[in-house]
């Protein structure tokens, strides 16, 4: 069994053409998902049951079911309903890319909101009491005390989630999107060379992951500058 390096050399540029789509899925879902996560977080910590409960249910459902199922429900399932096909959303939902972004957003939103909530819960109670004693309002305490500290606490878990999101983008290939994995699968189907193709693809993802980890390392160092003793 030989390792066909020339095949890798030919296929790499093809697979890398998909990097644009991978990147697009990652960034758009990441940003929209984060906004959704903040919304869910505020609902969860609002103290009002009619906000907290629906948020809890949403998070429970989206973290308890496989993302592949969520993608399939949106892409294959929604067209079952005529009112969806007739609505304004159809332009987005008809396209696999739109469906993938929607599914990834809804999914990562649930995970990230729990991560943010973990950060918020980690803010020392004494600090908030000091804020109260100084006369700060609840809103002021949340903005000036809770948010900066929670962000630093949540960052490691958040960076893990972004890497998970990157890996989930590969599932877009299951609904015909020509991202890196989609292109790779097509090549493998033609050439019957899964080792060469899939392994080089794995290396590409690993490089991507490595880059993300380095990026978050920089952000972590910047945010955590007040927690290191050297001045």
């Amino acid at each position: 069994m030989s390792f066909d390096f020339s095949l890798i050399a030919e296929s790499l540029p093809l697979m890398l053409m998909g990097i644009g789509i991978t990147f697009k899925l990652l960034v758009i879902s990441g940003v929209l998902g984060f906004c959704l996560a903040v919304g869910l977080l505020l609902m969860r910590i609002s103290g009002k049951w009619y906000l907290n409960f629906p948020a809890q249910v949403y998070i429970y459902v989206f973290r308890g079911t496989p993302i592949l199922v969520q993608i399939f429900i949106i892409y294959y399932g929604l067209p079952q309903f005529e009112w969806i096909r007739d609505s304004v959303f159809w332009a987005v939902l008809r396209e696999p890319t739109g469906c993938a972004i929607l599914a990834l957003t809804l999914n990562t939103g649930a995970y990230v909101s729990e991560i943010l909530r973990g950060g918020v819960l980690g803010v020392g109670k004494g600090l908030l009491e000091a804020g109260s004693a100084l006369g700060m309002s609840a809103r002021q305490k949340f903005i000036y005390i809770t948010t900066p500290i929670a962000a630093r606490l949540a960052l490691p878990a958040y960076s893990n989630d972004v890497i998970s999101l990157l890996k989930s983008t590969a599932l877009a290939s299951t609904i015909t999107i020509a991202d890196m994995t989609g292109i790779a699968r097509t090549i493998v189907a033609d050439t019957y060379a899964p080792y060469e193709i899939f392994m080089s693809l794995a290396i590409i993802y690993m490089i991507f992951t490595f880059g993300l980890q380095k990026l978050f390392g920089v952000i972590e160092r910047y945010l955590g500058r007040y927690s290191r003793r050297e001045g």
Binding site: K167, T169, A202, F210
Partner: peptide, 11 residues
């Protein structure tokens, strides 16, 4: 941890 699950399964 750096490779998509679907890829590992396919491989």
């Amino acid at each position: 941890r750096g490779t998509p699950e679907i890829l590992v399964i396919l491989l």
